[in-house]
Write a protein that binds this DNA or RNA. Sequence first.
DNA 1: GCCAACGTTGGC
DNA 2: GCCAACGTTGGC
Length: 148
Amino acid sequence: MAADRRRKEMKVMAASHWLVKSEPNSYSYADLERDGRTVWDGVRNNAAALHLKAMKEGDEVLFYHSQEGLAVVGVARVVRTAFPDATDPAGRFVAVELAPIRALAKPVTLAAMKAEPALAGMAMLRQSRLSVSPVSDAEWDVILKMAA
DNA sequence: GCCAACGTTGGC
DNA sequence: GCCAACGTTGGC
């Protein structure tokens, strides 16, 4: 039983991967590189907020450009776990802080991801409006390979 | 608690 | 600019 609990804790503690969307018009990956780190706030969706709350320091995050670009363009890292979003007057939602790790050598386009059978189950493809979504280890590896 | 109306996101 | 998906709101 103790072993069971330990296994569960290990699972919870294991590093996870995520994907966040941003319109480059309002905040691009280049902006993140320029700023060094940024508060990821303004998320007003419960499912997305749950994912923000599940993020741990050091988790790696794919940075996706929506509306324009339509591609994963960089990798970021969680540098501060969830805290109350100061831009939410009702105080219901949370924010995290992200820092840039690197821009991808080759952006991975939405079209390429849709065309890749290994990514058919990806959360962001199945629920296109979700602005913060989990990425499985397998999906993560596939996408980084596509970016090489 | 249901459901229609409405608003927002995001791809095309 | 349109439309699909989907979340939220508000009347009942």
